[in-house]
Design a protein around this nucleic acid. Sequence first.
DNA 1: ACTTGACTTGGAGTACGCTCGAAGTTTTAT
DNA 2: ATAAAACTTCGAGCGTACTCCAAGTCAAGT
Lengths: 113, 113
Amino acid sequence: MKIGELAKRSGLTAHTLRYYERIGLLPPAARDVSGNRDYDESILRWIEFLGRLKATDMPIRNMLRYAELRARGESTGTERRELLAAHRDGVRMRIAELQIGLQILDAKIAAYG
Amino acid sequence: MKIGELAKRSGLTAHTLRYYERIGLLPPAARDVSGNRDYDESILRWIEFLGRLKATDMPIRNMLRYAELRARGESTGTERRELLAAHRDGVRMRIAELQIGLQILDAKIAAYG
DNA sequence: ACTTGACTTGGAGTACGCTCGAAGTTTTAT
DNA sequence: ATAAAACTTCGAGCGTACTCCAAGTCAAGT
C-alpha cells in the first residue's frame, strides 16, 4: 500500500503520515523498488491506536514515549502500562472537569430561557 | 484593584490579562490617576466565566463573539443562549468521545496486566 | 509519446493561545 | 532620598501540531 492509499484508509493526509514518520510516531516505512513508501496493513492498527491517544488529548511527546517503548520490545510492558494508566487517569479528570462545565453551561442556558 | 492583585485573585498573569483586554475578551479597563488599570470586583465574575468556557475548550474567537454580544446588551440574549447551547452540545460530544477513549484505554491496560 | 497524477525531500508557513522582553514611568517601602 | 517593585506600551518569540510549497522523480493511462 502506497502513502496515498494509506492516507485514504487512515483518515490522515500523506503530509501528516510523513510528518509522523519524521518525528518517530510511525516506524520508518519500507520502500518499493522506486523508493516510494510501501506500507503493510498492520500499520493501520497502530495509526488507529495513535488516533485514540490523540482523541483523548495525549500530547505527541507522550505518544512518542509510548512508540519508543513499543519499539524496544516486550520488556517495556510495565512502563507502557504505567504510561497508559497515567494517561487514563488524566482522561478521567478531564471528563469530570467537562461535566462540571456542562452543568454550569446548562444553568446559564436555563437562565437565558 | 490594580492588575497585579487581579492577577493573583483570578489566577491569570498580568500579561494574560492585558492580552485578553487587547483582543477584546475583557472590556477596556478603567484607569487611575497615574494611568494604571483600575479594576472593579465585578470583573472577577466575568473572568471566572471565561475560565469555564476555556476549561470546556471554547476557542477564543467564540468567547469573543460572546463577549461582543454581551457588550451589545440585553437584546442579544437569544443569540448568546444559542451560542452557549451549541457549545454545550459540543461539550457533550466531547465527553462521549473521551468516554469511548477511556474504555479503550482500560481494555488496553487490562491486556498489559 | 505524452500528459496526468502520485510520489520524493527539505524547509518554510500557519493557527492558536499565550508569554516574555525592552524601555520607560510611577509607586511604595525603608 | 533612594532603591526595589509594580505599572505602562509595543512588538517579538514560543510550543504544539500540523500544513503546504518547491523542485524534482517516477509511474500509469490513452
